[in-house]
Amino acid sequence: MTSNQLMFILFSAMIVVFSILTVTTRRILRAAAFLLMVLLSTSGLYFMLNYQFMAAVQLTLYAGGIVVLIIFSILLTSHISQKFEPVELKKSIFSALAAVAGAILCILTILDYSFSATTVAAQEVNMKLIGKSLLSVDYDGYVLPFEVISILLLAAMIAAIVVAKKGGPAKTKTPTLN
């Protein structure tokens, strides 16, 4: 066994275990914490592949961004004493079936593909390349999706502000941030 294999097994085990914990825990903030672990382990896999850009994006966007957002909203809405009711048996059976079906589908698809072993060592992706392709208008450029997502996010931001403003201006004497 090489160290690479060991790390791979470690990370995949973490992903599996924490994913299961995420959906089975009855405390909402713990679920978020476990989700964070899953995302961290995933980025660990990316680091193993020497795909550092992806790993760092995974860290900033998911771990540093989305999970923080989730935790923030949990902090605002729920109390520490809140717990979820245990799920009914019927529901859990159905969801287990759905999960197994999904897993079978994925495994079949993966098995269907013949992974040819490469002898080329993993290479670091050049940052300049990523930057150029992000802003290129060529066939494999990402400028269009980039812009579309930007507009989408802008719309989401405006919507969020509108929703947040619904209650009318705060009746405080000090300026609040809006």
């Binding site: 903030l29 914490a33 964070l36 550092q52 850009f53 790993a55 760092a56 994006v57 860290l59 900033t60 771990a63 540093g64 961004g65 999970v67 923080v68 935790i71 923030f72 949990i74 902090l75 520490i80 670091e124 992706v125 050049n126 940052m127």
Partner: peptide
């Protein structure tokens, strides 16, 4: 390769510890 981006990415997670500490 992405050194400084990695630094920002990782340090953005320290807030999670603070949030968890405060809530729990």
């Amino acid at each position: 390769n992405i050194g400084i981006f990695y630094v920002i990415a990782v340090s953005s997670m320290s807030v999670i510890g603070v949030l968890l500490a405060g809530w729990s």
